[in-house]
Simulated scan of single mutants.
Amino acid sequence: MVACICMWIHLATDLSTEYPFGKAICRVGSFLQVLSVTVSVLSLTAVVLNRFLSAITRTFSCVTQTRYKLTIFLIWLIGVVLSFPWLLYTKLVDFDWAGGHERYCVEIFPSKSSRTVYVTFFTCCVYAAPLTFMLILATVTLAHPSHTPSAPTSQMALRMKRRAQQMILVVLITFIICWTPQQATLLWDVYRDPDIPKPTNIAAIKYTAIYLAYSNSAINPIIYIVFNDCFQHVLWKFARCKIRPNAEIRVTPASAQVCSVISVSSS
């Protein structure tokens, strides 16, 4: 969603002298960006919590399809609710100056205090607190000693599990590095003293922060390739044109190549 929609809206806006789109995109663009952050944080929280419970509590059962679907539904529902103010208060504003006409897409909350409360709540409770909680859980999960099995199949399954835990931690740290500057600029914007002139380089800082956040979508696939043996295997097959479009990919830990690719003929 970030790579396909939000990034291109910002890029077109930055390359134009005024906002180039209409009211609908103005409202939806900011809403989708906040929605993507919220859903990403909540999804990571669910994954990290599941890994933690699986590693610490041996009796913890795997997530069923029903729970899986319910979790996804709740994540998106919460994301839409928390992001809705941007859909409600983002507006396209026209300014007529003596020197010409300008158009901006801005967030106009009912009051400055309401915007301050919302941004503070989002940054602290939806962003910072869950990420701190996840960092603790991911670190504890990775440091938790695992029973070393004797069977080769079990050893491979354990190796895949450990690499998955490492991958989650790296994904989490990368997300924090990429998105924290953008969240910090939003927080600075609501608490800055309006009587003090803005720094001359603030536009460049905000520009760098937003595109650093967008770069997270490009970095994640690289992380998956590095830590996921099955992903590497399938990608190498695709690169050598050895996988048909209708192939079915199955993970088989007992296999020497971790996963297998099965061609399925269409009826």
Rank of each mutant, 00 (worst) to 15 (best):
L88S: 07
T141Q: 12
P130A: 05
F121M: 01
K112S: 02
I56M: 15
V119E: 00
Y104P: 00
D94R: 06
D94E: 12
L92H: 10
A143M: 08
Y127F: 12
F133W: 05
Y89C: 15
A98W: 04
F73I: 12
V63Y: 00
I56H: 11
L70Q: 14
I75N: 12
L74K: 09
H101Y: 13
Y127C: 09
I72A: 10
T71E: 10
I72Y: 07
K112L: 07
L77Y: 12
F133G: 05
V106P: 06
A129Y: 01
Y118A: 01
A128D: 03
G79M: 14
I136H: 10
T139H: 04
S113I: 01
T57K: 01
I108M: 12
A129T: 07
L70F: 13
T57M: 06
R67D: 11
F95Q: 08
V93Q: 05
S111V: 05
H147I: 13
R67Y: 09
L70W: 10
T66S: 15
K69G: 13
Y89F: 14
F95Y: 06
H101W: 06
F73V: 13
S146V: 15
L135W: 00
C125S: 03
F122E: 09
L77W: 06
Y68A: 07
I72H: 09
W86P: 06
Y127H: 10
V63I: 15
F60Q: 14
Y68P: 00
T139F: 12
I56D: 00
L70V: 12
G79F: 09
C125I: 04
V117C: 05
F109D: 10
I108T: 08
T116L: 01
W97A: 08
F73W: 11
D94T: 15
S146I: 12
W97I: 13
S146C: 08
Y104S: 13
S146E: 14
S146K: 04
T141L: 10
K69E: 14
